[in-house]
């Protein structure tokens, strides 16, 4: 764009006068997201959800829930990373995440103990994928040690791999890595912060 040949006065006159109301753009955005969904060109839909552990980012492909991210992970950075690794065809499109948001809401109100959602785990492969499966098997209100998960996965010496699978869990809360604690009974690290981990464990134990 060669801004030198724009008459700034004229441009200001037109642009400030012709400023489309934000309401109009919000309405058009909703329409665009719906059209993109129907025509199958929306690779990743996302929304945010306010919870007792802060605002969560939820993102889903057409296959299922792809990512749950804590505010501490920086939602903009998470979306940028999805754009780079999966597809930049990303829109704020809450409808695809209605079910996930509803079930998470019920979980935080202690009205739900297990999630019944399609998950897109296609980006996790091999050992990591198997470990995520082990994590999903830990029941609501229970905890397991990193060592016990390693044994359950058939690799007793893979304690560090369990820690790493938890630290890189793409679906925290839904895949309950918060239920994995240290063998000495201390809480251990959590990608949403230890306060969030404590909140989740307290919520489940009170049920």
């Amino acid at each position: 764009m060669t801004s030198t040949d724009l008459d700034p006065e004229v441009r200001d006159l037109l642009v400030t006068a012709a400023h489309p109301a934000d309401l109009d753009l919000a309405r058009l955005h909703t329409r665009l997201a719906a059209a993109a969904e129907v025509t199958g060109v929306l690779d990743v839909a996302y929304r945010t959800l306010d919870t007792p552990v802060g605002t969560l980012l939820l993102a889903a492909t057409e296959r299922g829930l792809l990512r749950v991210a804590f505010a501490a992970e920086d939602h903009d950075a998470v979306l940028a990373s999805i754009a780079a690794r999966i597809s930049p065809r990303i829109l704020h499109a809450p409808v695809r995440l209605d079910d996930a948001a509803r079930q998470l809401g019920e979980y935080f109100e202690r009205r739900r103990q297990a999630f019944d959602l399609p998950l897109d785990l296609s980006r996790s492969t091999g050992v990591r994928r198997a470990l995520l499966g082990q994590l999903r098997a830990i029941e609501y209100g229970r905890t397991a040690s990193y060592a016990a998960i390693a044994v359950a996965a058939g690799s007793p010496r893979a304690v560090r791999a369990v820690g790493s699978a938890c630290a890189t869990n793409p679906l925290p809360v839904v895949v309950p890595c918060h239920r994995v604690v240290r063998s000495d009974g201390t809480i251990g690290q959590y990608l949403g912060g230890t306060d969030a981990k404590r909140t989740l464990l307290r919520l489940e134990s009170a049920a």
């Binding site: 012709a18 400023h19 109009d24 058009l28 930049p88």
Partner: peptide
């Protein structure tokens, strides 16, 4: 590496709407 399309809509949605309205009028612009 491209940024999420959502940012493209947020950044340029207003300009494109003004252009569409100028060419087609406020009703058909949508």
């Amino acid at each position: 590496v491209q940024e999420p399309f959502e940012l493209v809509v947020a950044r340029h949605g207003g300009t494109v709407l003004r252009v569409c309205r100028a060419v087609l009028g406020p009703v058909d612009a949508d």
